[in-house]
Simulated scan of single mutants.
Amino acid sequence: MDAFFTSTLTVALAEIGDKTQLLSLFLAARFRNKWGIVAGILVATLANHAVSAWLGDWLGQFLTSQLGQWLIGGSFIALGLWLLIPDKDDSDDSRFLQFGAFTASVVLFFLAEIGDKTQIATVLLGAQFESVLWVTAGTTLGMLIANIPVVFAGHHLMNRIPLNVTRWLAATAFVAVGLLQIF
């Protein structure tokens, strides 16, 4: 259960202010079908994070040495520092919007997650915990925890959340996980 709780917490924190959260805000402003957006986020995240957790689990077999543990821990620390850099919304690809809330959300969310901080975190969590199921479930829940309120509460919520504080909290969580992995 450590894999599930750590994955949920770290990804939920890392997602605040992330480009995929900005994409959720964009989709919520564009479509009335909020549950279609949520379902699209769920499907895209499950697909993306299952592959990412599997990749991390597979890579984990090569990182069982002390050096490998240092690499995983150092990667968490580097990712924590990367979280301090704010993302920009680059979701202006309108060709998918014509297919409706669900399809647009699946496609745009899946594409936005490729190479994103939370995808890299999922690979690292998969390597650390060697549990595709629990890491995928935890990171997907973390994404939903961070994005569902944005879909339904949108601008009101984004104006009230202090993004700098949440960025620092997320960075601290990732650095702490990295230090725990090393020591």
Rank of each mutant, 00 (worst) to 15 (best):
Phe102Val: 09
Leu55His: 14
Leu25Ser: 09
Ser105Tyr: 01
Asn159Ala: 11
Asn147Ala: 10
Gly73Arg: 05
Gly73Gln: 07
Ser52Thr: 04
Leu124Met: 12
Arg95His: 09
Gln66Val: 14
Ala14Val: 02
Ser75Gln: 08
Trp168Tyr: 09
Phe102Gln: 07
Ser52Cys: 15
Val11Arg: 00
Leu83Pro: 00
Ala176Met: 12
Asp87Met: 03
Arg95Leu: 10
Gln69Pro: 02
Lys117Asp: 04
Phe99Lys: 14
Thr139Trp: 04
Leu180Tyr: 09
His49Ser: 13
Asp57Ala: 15
Leu163Ala: 05
Phe5Gly: 02
Ser94Leu: 15
Val107Asn: 01
Leu108Phe: 00
Ala146Ser: 13
Met143Thr: 13
Gly115Pro: 07
Ala53Ser: 15
Val175Asn: 03
Phe76Asp: 02
Ser94Trp: 05
Thr136Gly: 12
Gly100Pro: 05
Trp35Glu: 08
Val175Pro: 05
Phe4Val: 02
Val51Lys: 10
Asn164Ala: 10
Val150Asn: 01
Gly60Ala: 14
Ala171Lys: 04
Ala44Asp: 01
Leu144Asn: 01
Thr64Phe: 10
Ala153Thr: 07
Asp89Pro: 10
Ala29Gln: 12
Ser52Pro: 07
Phe110Arg: 08
Gln66Ile: 12
Val43Leu: 15
Leu13Ile: 02
Thr166Cys: 12
Leu81Pro: 04
Ala53Phe: 09
Thr45Ala: 15
Ala39Phe: 13
Thr172Tyr: 06
Leu97Thr: 01
Phe183Leu: 11
Asp57Tyr: 15
Leu144Asp: 06
His155Val: 09
Ile37Leu: 03
Gly138Ile: 01
His155Lys: 12
Leu79Lys: 01
Gly115Ala: 14
Ile145Pro: 05
Lys34Ala: 13
Gln69Thr: 11
Ala153Tyr: 13
Phe152Cys: 03
Val107Arg: 01
Leu133Pro: 04
Trp35Cys: 03
Glu130Phe: 14
Leu13Thr: 02
Ala104Lys: 03
Arg160Glu: 11
Leu55Trp: 10
Pro86Met: 02
Gln69Tyr: 04
Gly68Asp: 08
Gly80Leu: 10
Asn48Thr: 14
Ile120Trp: 10
Arg167Trp: 05
Leu97Gln: 04
Asp90Ser: 14
Arg95Thr: 11
Arg167Glu: 00
Trp134Met: 06
Leu111Thr: 07
Asp18Phe: 07
